[in-house]
Design a protein around this nucleic acid. Structure first.
Lengths: 219, 219
DNA sequence: TGACTCAGTCAACACTATGTTGATAGCTTG
DNA sequence: CAAGCTATCAACATAGTGTTGACTGAGTCA
């Protein structure tokens, strides 16, 4: 069924797609990149490393991607798509209690990026220096923020959550908090963060920030 | 009085300090760097740009700093010192209510980095790619986190704050949230963040996360 | 079947930036 | 005034990026 995973979103930059062996090489480059990123930063990986890893020469690399940053961007698109899909699946299974929806949605996103730590770390770094990555990630965050705002406003409307700061500012702060703390946990940056428990702590903060009281945070 | 601002912390990498004209040049390089960073990223500034800006040749630059990253590190050390000093001064003025202490301390830190936006942005980026910057910033964050933990625990001990997640995890999440949201506000990344009001929103989240209720967040 | 096209490939080149060497010019100090 | 240190830079070596132009081989179709 030709797996329409939604990665059509990613338009194959620099490649006039179609033929057989070419797609394999493109895939080899992506795999090589994610593998090498486990052990060094993008800066410490040369285009030559990626090319050799995929069994081609450096100029040939440029036939497939315009730069090594574009490779990361392509990987990021795929993982973002995976996160969306996992979140949708989780919400499918969740009940219709607003709190349960947040909890399971956040867990799905966390777990997806957690299974691509190296890429997450790299994307966070490129966010600062690469406009395209910044743009992709801003759209992703905006999606999360928008959902959060809608959730907060509907909870406030039905009297379940008290008033407070503008829903949008609250949502921005909470979502960026998650992003940053997930990353710190993935990179083992602070050894006192328990990778298994971070999410519960963050959920408690969400609960208190939105409801000014504790909801059930456990699984 | 020879201004012992505390920047002794920064050991003059690569420079056998003492004589006259040399200190001027070092200062010129630092000033040039902070000026150029207002308009482009560190990556887009070459060592040659810094050297010319300070009126010297590229090799001479290396007499003063081992790399352009070292220049940023030096600037960062200074701003961190400034933040510490401003925070200490603010706490001097504050009463002894725990909440007031947090509010004024956070405001001092926010204002300091806000007056060095370009450097803050650059440091955040270098955090990901440069071990020395990561180390400096980790120490700074650890200071904030440690203070926050102490505050939370003392509030819990005297019954002013309810139980909840481990104080340290809570403190880490709240402090990283601030770091990330300050940065987003400085870079104008999300136009819906009101640079004047962010701090109040963050303070409300701190209040609810720690006390599970609202304290006075206004000035 | 033979001329044409086109994805795929790479050696060689041009360019840019970093960091190093070695030589030199000028204080300043005993 | 010679020894020693600070400060300086032309020239070099190196590493990485991105581009050009030419070659190959598989499919196409007149």
């Amino acid at each position: 069924m030709n797996a329409p995973t939604g990665s059509e979103v990613y338009l194959p930059r620099g490649r006039r797609a179609r033929k057989p062996s070419g797609d394999d090489r493109e895939r080899d480059i992506l795999i090589t990149a994610e593998r090498l990123l486990e052990h060094r930063s993008l800066h410490d990986i040369s285009v030559d490393d990626l090319a050799r890893g995929a069994g081609i020469s450096r100029p040939t690399f440029y036939f497939y991607f315009p730069s090594k940053e574009a490779v990361v961007l392509s990987l990021l698109d795929r993982v973002v798509e995976e996160a969306r899909a996992n979140r949708a699946a989780a919400l499918e299974r969740a009940g219709d209690d607003a709190w349960e929806i947040w909890r399971d949605g956040l867990r799905a996103i966390h777990d997806t990026f957690r299974s691509h730590k190296a890429l997450s770390r790299t994307a966070a770094q490129l966010f600062a220096e690469n406009p395209e990555v910044r743009s992709v990630w801003s759209v992703v965050m905006e999606g999360f923020v928008g959902d959060t705002v809608a959730g907060i406003e509907s909870e406030r409307a039905r009297g379940a959550a008290p008033d407070g700061p503008p829903a949008r500012e609250l949502a921005i702060a909470l979502n960026w908090m998650n992003e940053r703390v997930f990353l710190a946990s993935f990179t083992g940056q602070d050894p006192s963060i328990d990778e298994e428990r971070v999410l519960d702590t963050l959920l408690t903060i969400w609960s208190r920030a939105i409801y000014a009281e504790d909801r059930l945070a456990g699984a």
